[in-house]
């Protein structure tokens, strides 16, 4: 079985995000870069699928030179090889451009199942998986918390507002991973040593024949609106404080 897992490198969840004074982006100094947590679930599921059914896992990434570290992490977890699409042209590219690059790379290799994270925790767009599936002409199931391979098809659980759906889909298909799908493994020390020797193919936009688009572009980054300082409710005992809170929510904030 040929399995592909797409990964992105993102600032870790504890990172403070500061907007550059000119609004052209965020300050990257001091940021710790990690594999997007949702992509980690995808890589883990790909590895489990391979371990059960045999085959090969290919990691594909669009990102700057530093993203090689994230590809190596996935290889250290147990993936077999990588494709790194590295081109400054992709700075500020939109989801369509990223998906086009991934599609161009994946078209060239056999693929039965593709895993992506349900969204990247940096731009929070959640588009690349679905656009990639469309460009490859295969079905998608997004935001999946349970995955089962059943021969020529997959059965998955997709939570929606107020319900869970059990969905079946034939191969080839693309699945985007949600938290809860699995518990990703840590790379072992031998895994890390082996990963250094695994092949990673580096490509640029031209070698893939991709035109980089910016159909939707962040023209300006802005800091979040500041919240006015809040009120600390004082009182002699819990009952007094609780009563005052209820009163304020009713009379001042008018929310209950």
């Amino acid at each position: 079985m040929n399995i592909v897992a797409c990964v992105k490198q993102v600032p870790d969840t504890e990172a403070q995000i500061k907007v550059k004074p000119d609004g052209s982006g965020i300050e990257e100094g001091g940021i710790k870069w990690v594999m997007n947590p949702y992509d980690e679930f995808g890589v883990e599921e790909a590895l489990r699928l391979k371990e059960k059914n045999g085959g090969e896992v290919t990691i594909v990434n669009v990102g700057p030179a530093r993203a090689m570290e994230t590809i190596r992490t996935a290889l250290a977890m147990g993936a077999d090889k990588g494709i790194h699409i590295c081109d400054p042209a992709f700075d500020g590219a939109d989801a369509f451009a990223t998906a086009s690059a991934l599609a161009a790379a994946i078209k060239g290799i056999p693929h039965d199942i593709i895993f992506c994270g349900q969204r990247a925790i940096d731009d929070d767009s959640g588009q690349v998986g679905a656009i990639l599936a469309e460009l490859l002409g295969i079905p998608q199931i997004t935001v999946v918390t349970k995955f089962e391979f059943a021969g020529s098809s997959v059965k998955v659980i997709r939570p929606i507002e107020g319900a869970q759906l059990l969905i079946e889909c034939p191969l080839p298909c693309l699945v985007t991973a949600q938290k809860g799908l699995n518990e990703p493994r840590y790379a072992s020390l031998p895994g890390i040593m082996k990963a250094k020797k695994k092949p990673v193919d580096v490509k640029d936009a031209a070698s893939l024949g991709v035109t980089v688009t910016a159909n939707a572009r962040v023209a300006k980054f802005i800091p979040p609106p500041a919240r006015a300082a809040g009120k600390i409710i004082c009182g002699d005992d819990p009952a007094t404080k609780a009563r005052e809170l209820a009163r304020l929510l009713r009379e001042e904030a008018k929310v209950i």
Partner: peptide, 23 residues
Amino acid sequence: ASTQGKDLSARLVGKLVTGLATD
């Protein structure tokens, strides 16, 4: 930007070859 809308809107970006601002 519901579960359904997110799923559908992203697929439409591929079909319509355009851009989308999510959520």
